[in-house]
Design a protein around this nucleic acid. Structure first.
Length: 279
DNA sequence: GATAATGTTCGATC
DNA sequence: AGATCGAACATTAT
């Protein structure tokens, strides 16, 4: 679930369900998902009002009324639910925030990679969850991207996943973005031409914004609660489509799958080329 | 039972 | 010092 569009969808749904509510009681069911001592987490959060709902890359930033913030990173399987009193927790519920509006906000995470962290606003820069997180991918800085990518020899697809260069792109959208750029994902980062760099910046913003519009991608049958399920899976051009025909009009290619840096990567070998715009 | 999964981090090696 | 690679983390679903 968790790339920029999915986390942005969580942010919006949480704002809807919990805006201006006060935390009356906190249950930490699994201390592993809390950064730092669980006791401090509970005492620091109890009695606070949730005043702002932000996000940077894949990190949720919930501002509290005493100048602190609750950060959340869902990693692979984390998600937030807004439960009404009759709803039951799943067996993967890790932290429950009871609110004075009757809602329970639940952080639910099958694999337990996700993390919640309470930080003083002034030291957000020291926050574990924001360390190594660059500027948000919905607003790409072409100059910055060009400089970072020029220094590296790794495949451009792997470079796009580096959160300190640009934050929010994950494994699905990386393949999708490069498809829309017509660029081979294996192309060394430093070989990407200026015109191609510009395309990457443009398509990153466009594809992710589109993902947000469709409320993210829901692969397999995740249930709807507060996060709802997204619809961008119906708009994927390459991810998960190995062996299927390329959807680009007039292209007779077949979608290939390669492993880059241990992650599955999909592309059309016909219309995504190395140095495509090279002159 | 083996395999893969929308992510990050750490240690080893270049 | 800096870049890169693979293992590790933990658990389910297929």
């Amino acid at each position: 679930m968790p790339e920029l569009p999915e986390v942005e969808t969580m942010r919006r749904d949480l704002a809807q369900a919990a805006s201006k509510a006060t935390v009356t009681h906190v249950e930490v069911l699994d201390e592993k998902v809390v950064v730092g001592p669980a006791q401090e987490f509970v005492t620091g959060l109890t009695g606070r009002r949730l005043t702002a709902f932000g996000r940077r890359g894949k990190v949720l930033i919930i501002g509290l009324d005493n100048d602190t913030a609750l950060l959340g990173h869902p990693r692979m399987t984390g998600r937030f639910f807004a439960l009404q009193s009759k709803d039951d927790l799943t067996r993967f519920a890790r932290v429950v925030l009871h609110l004075d509006n009757g809602t329970r906000v639940v952080f639910d995470d099958i694999r337990r990679f996700g993390r919640l962290e309470l930080v003083a606003d002034a030291v957000q820069g020291d926050a574990a969850l924001l360390r190594n997180i660059g500027h948000d991918a919905l607003h790409c800085d072409l100059d910055h991207l060009s400089k970072c990518f020029a220094k590296r020899s790794i495949p451009i697809k792997v470079a796009l996943l580096d959160q300190k260069v640009v934050a929010g792109i994950g494994n699905i959208y990386a393949s999708e973005i490069l498809f829309h750029c017509g660029l081979d994902p294996r192309t060394p980062s430093c070989c990407v031409k200026p015109a191609e760099m510009a395309a990457i910046a443009r398509e990153t913003e466009r594809v992710l914004a589109e993902g947000v519009q469709y409320r993210g991608t829901t692969i397999s049958d995740y249930r709807t609660m507060s996060g709802g399920k997204g619809n961008y899976q119906d708009h994927l051009r390459v991810y998960g489509r190995e062996g299927q025909p390329c959807l680009r009009e007039g292209c007779e290619g077949t979608i290939q799958k390669v492993i880059l840096s241990t992650r599955s990567t999909y592309y059309c070998s016909r219309c995504q080329r190395k140095g495509r715009t090279r002159k």
